[in-house]
Design a protein around this nucleic acid. Structure first.
Lengths: 116, 116
DNA sequence: CAGAATCCAACCGGATACTG
DNA sequence: CAGTATCCGGTTGGATTCTG
């Protein structure tokens, strides 16, 4: 990791956008298309309604997600990824590839550390 | 972002490793070579000693950093990145490149959202 | 259906002081 | 030098309740 070439502030910016506990889970769900609030809620049982709401609000605020309200009864709201959010796909793949590759070593390091 | 291809759990794993507030700052500093505790402390004035300590302990536990104690007086401790931590360099670059590219849009989205 | 509001417990992290 | 220990205020997030 070369200090001079990693723009630290940019890195912090992305992590501030998607680094929190649920943002990425939501984004990935939106990856195959628009989803309603309740669909996301069912798809992510471990996210409380409150947190889902706050997460979506954050993503919307940062322009990663678009919120569309359909004037119907009962109300329908759909969340959609924006084009630039889609471009996050590849960087995130790179990261998870790293994780997949080194998972065993990380687990082993953790075991070794914990017994000591 | 293709749901079927992004291994969500791997992604969460990496973010759990380096997603917290200071881990990456520390890693980047270690990018050009081993550093002593006090060097890191000076290089990262906004990180409290306590947080630096906890961060290093976490990185060490996950095998991203090696801690070496030299039996001298006064004591000297050096922190070094492990080989697999170095491989994080490129994925992190990809992420920060995304941030750099879309920074303006994100900022604009935020402004638009906040005035509303 | 899609949230917002409120309450409250748990956790986080800074400041300070102490140690091998 | 390189930490750890303790105290403590602020933030986070779950549970619950209320609403258009």
């Amino acid at each position: 990791m070369d200090n001079g070439e990693v723009p630290l502030c940019s890195l912090r910016e992305v992590l501030d956008l998607v680094g929190d506990k649920w943002a990425i889970q939501v984004l990935v769900r939106l990856g195959d298309g628009p989803r309603r609030f309740s669909e996301l809620e069912r798809a992510l049982p471990r996210v409380s309604r409150r947190m889902l709401s706050l997460t979506l609000r954050g993503l919307e605020r940062n322009g990663l997600v678009t919120r569309t309200v359909y004037p119907e009864v009962p109300p329908r709201v759909e969340y959609t990824m924006t084009p630039h959010a889609m471009e996050l796909d590849e960087p995130l793949h790179a990261l998870s590839a790293w994780a997949a590759k080194h998972r065993a070593k990380v687990a082993e390091a953790r075991r070794a550390f914990d017994v000591a």
